[in-house]
Write a protein that binds this DNA or RNA. Sequence first.
DNA 1: TCAAGTAGGGCTAAATTTAGCCGTATTGGC
DNA 2: GCCAATACGGCTAAATTTAGCCCTACTTGA
Lengths: 132, 132
Amino acid sequence: MEMTYICQMYERKLPVRLECGLHLFMEIMSGKWKINLIWCIHQGINRPGELHRTLPNASRRLLDDQLAQLVAHGMLVKKVFDVKPFKVEYALTPLGQTLIPVIENTARWGESYRSELEEKIQKNPSFRGERS
Amino acid sequence: MEMTYICQMYERKLPVRLECGLHLFMEIMSGKWKINLIWCIHQGINRPGELHRTLPNASRRLLDDQLAQLVAHGMLVKKVFDVKPFKVEYALTPLGQTLIPVIENTARWGESYRSELEEKIQKNPSFRGERS
DNA sequence: TCAAGTAGGGCTAAATTTAGCCGTATTGGC
DNA sequence: GCCAATACGGCTAAATTTAGCCCTACTTGA
């Protein structure tokens, strides 16, 4: 008799590294759309459909995945309303709220140096095997 | 006659996203060992061999790549000393220096909530297809 | 001459993340 | 009945990052 899985999950094969606090932050926030999701929800755009319309370049599939990861990591809660047609809303948890000032601070750094950073990033799209 | 390349580079096929300052930060800092590299260099461990001994789990190959990316992105400078046997040192640029307080602030956040975060991350290793 | 330390590159495969298709079920309006 | 909107899941392939092999060239010391 074979194993069956509730959902097809990808089993991690390499260890996660959490030595320092910055690693913890990056583990939570890395994911193509997570920043945007947190920010949208912080601003009150908090339903899956709305989020998808606000971030039209993201596939609905991936948004769902990343929302679920943020929920699993305790940054968001998912509220399911038992109305017909049923609806869903996300909100920041207290822990998720604590991210906001950190994000703001970091974003401020990026904005302060945007011109230099953009130039260098564009000129040097990270690539495998890059050398100086 | 065919094109030849100086080094085998990976040509990016999907666009880079830099809307907000946090994206800029993450573009610079994402890479398995970059945080550690910046931090080590900040603390004076700044030669390739030293760095490799300090981070023995990283392959020398990848460390070299990520150092070169940090140089290309203007966070580090690479000084090559013309002595025999020749030696190399990395140092933070003025721009790279500005990262330090941001890293400290973010790391502080991670440390403040380490216990909750670790627990949730361990219990929920991010995986493809995750759902709530 | 051989081993070890300096620094670095070529190459391939594995691991991981993202893209994108198509299908489920419910409700409401035309 | 059919189409749209709500919210989700299965599946596969593409894109990207990381791992890990082996090789070059130089110098010092045994």
